[in-house]
Design a protein around this nucleic acid. Structure first.
Lengths: 210, 210
DNA sequence: AAATTAATTGAACATTCATTCAATTAATTT
DNA sequence: AAATTAATTGAATGAATGTTCAATTAATTT
């Protein structure tokens, strides 16, 4: 009875508007008023759905963390072929897709909340462990199919993500496109090394056969 | 003639107060008023020395970036002994010292400005390249003394710092002290591997000799 | 002592902010 | 049509923000 609720879709809409503002002006300058103005609603409607700005930020973080899991999205055709899937995932991580999915400015601002909010910290921990766990499972599948021989899949998965996080930390500062591309390839090579796979670029550098 | 200027010392004092507030409440909540109150001065004095809050943040970033270089501070006795010095630097990086020098919450907030401020981005780039350059020089010294055999010192230095940055990204989420210590040792081991040195912990795990 | 220069204060300003509350509008059910 | 429920608005509030400006205080030199 009564009017039917559109809570969830409205919340998502607001979060995305908030994200848009945060991308443009920084999370610290993203306000409820600006968010409301962007989608032509009243600021009090934002409060109605989120109670406080704090909860809106929580919503944003949840939204962002969900995006991270999309790097495991691979073509349905790869089902049953963990090797192909693994390579695709590595591709996703070290490619344009990463930059499309995330705005690093907002990401680092959100991450900084980890240090003052236990709940945020836990959410991030769960995500990072999930990312590692998924990669580990993928490696183990490859091991079982005999296409990979990785001794400690969990440790390798961890190492790879350590490299990913560190890599983008540096890459965010590289403005030169050519240098960016080259560095990205280099870091991808490091990840593949961890899997005892050799990247095309690094093998080309030190070929000694013939 | 006239009153002698205390500009520099006053600016430093203000920056440190601003940093203190930022550590406690987050950079986005660190205001000029709070900063002034902390050291019992008038808010307009802060403006007098920094013109705008933006420049105060620039000052803070400069202050923070200078701190990073302190990880290369080693006992004077190590002079002429690059091997000892290298190990000490690695120690500094993967130890309590890191956490004493930096507040990661403020660090990530500052870093997020990189994406909206070209000047900040350049400053960070210079720092990160300096950190890598110093480590590379240290490795080369070790090579020349025959105590290390690293093929590509520049690449290895880069890789180590990629690992460092990625390592602390994850470690910031680890609340369990024991787990933290163990992970830190593990990441340190990865760094030493890059130098073709074996860490005590990692060698103990898979010892097969007799 | 007068002149000079910098340090410092205090009042005032406009702006933006998050949030509250009551009132209204729009669906949906009985 | 009446009742119910949620969506949405609009006005208002108080607090905090960064910044400006003129005035005052304190040191240092001539």
């Amino acid at each position: 009875m009564g009017r039917r609720s559109i809570k969830e879709s409205r919340q998502k809409e607001i979060i995305e508007a908030f994200y848009t503002i945060a991308k443009k002006e920084g999370l610290e300058n993203a306000s409820i008023a600006k968010t409301a103005a962007l989608i032509n609603i009243n600021p009090s409607l934002v409060i109605h759905y989120f109670k406080t700005r704090e909860y809106l930020v929580y919503g944003l973080i949840e939204y962002i963390l969900d995006q991270y899991l999309l790097i495991y999205k691979t073509p349905a055709a790869y089902k049953g072929d963990p090797h192909k899937k693994l390579l695709k995932v590595i591709d996703n991580i070290f490619s344009h897709k990463w930059n499309v999915l995330f705005d690093d400015s907002v990401a680092y601002s959100c991450y900084s909340l980890v240090f003052r909010d236990q709940k945020v910290k836990e959410n991030y921990k769960v995500l990072l462990d999930t990312l590692r766990g998924n990669l580990r499972a993928l490696i183990e599948e490859c091991n079982q199919q005999g296409v990979l021989k990785v001794k400690d899949p969990a440790a390798v998965a961890d190492t790879i993500f350590v490299m990913v996080d560190g890599a983008y930390y540096y890459l965010s500062l590289v403005s030169n496109k050519k240098e960016y591309k080259q560095k990205l390839a280099q870091y991808k090579g490091l990840a593949l090394q961890q899997l005892n796979l050799v990247s095309p670029s690094s093998s080309g550098k030190s070929r000694q056969k013939h």
